[in-house]
Each structure stands twice: as structure tokens, then as C-alpha cells.
Amino acid sequence: MSMPHRTFLVLLALEGEPLYGYALRKRVLVLSGGRFELEPGGLYRLIGRLQGEGLVQSVPRPQSDLSGDARRQYYGLTAAGEEALREEAIRLTDLAGRSEVRALAEGRG
């Protein structure tokens, strides 16, 4: 079962450390090599769905945030979220490792 690419990017961005909205957007932008710029509405729509599916949860504000903006809400992966992310990563790696895919990529490069 594959997941939409932008879902994968959001989960990947939250892997390791929790992030708040704006930081999450910037991280997704970096991870996608500048190709995926999530707008706020789209981002929170996605977060709402992922929360509903139990892949993402809100987490307490980390000590490192010194901004003082009380409105910042941090999000992190749930156990199910980590599991889903790992499955997708394995699927992608398998796919990328296949000779046909490599041949295509090299042929083009």
C-alpha cells in the first residue's frame, strides 16, 4: 500500500524531532529539494487527516523553543506513524533497487 508523496514527506520531516507548523513546511521544502511547498491550509488539512488516522500527534513544546509564541503547536510521529513511514521507506528502496528502475534513471542521466 503506497502513500501519497506529500504524506511521506511530512512524516519524514517529523521523523526524529517534533516540529511546529512553519518549521515543518520549511523542512518539507528542503527534503523535497525545493519541489514541495505546502501552503498553510494544505498543510493543516493534511495534519488533520494524519491525526485522524493516528499517524501524527501533537506533542508538548520542547525546551529548545525560546520564541515565547504560545500559539506554536508541535507535532510528532505516533508509533503507528513511524511504522507507516518505515514501510513506505522500504517500499521505495525496493522499488529504487530494481534493475528496470535503475536502468531508466541511468539511461536518462
Partner: peptide
């Protein structure tokens, strides 16, 4: 949705 994310979106 507004109740849930409105403030964060405004902050962003």
C-alpha cells in the same frame, strides 16, 4: 478546523 488550527496558522 478553525478552532483547532486557526491560531497556529495565524502564527505561521
Amino acid at each position: 478546523s478553525r478552532d483547532r488550527y486557526g491560531e497556529e496558522m495565524a502564527a505561521m
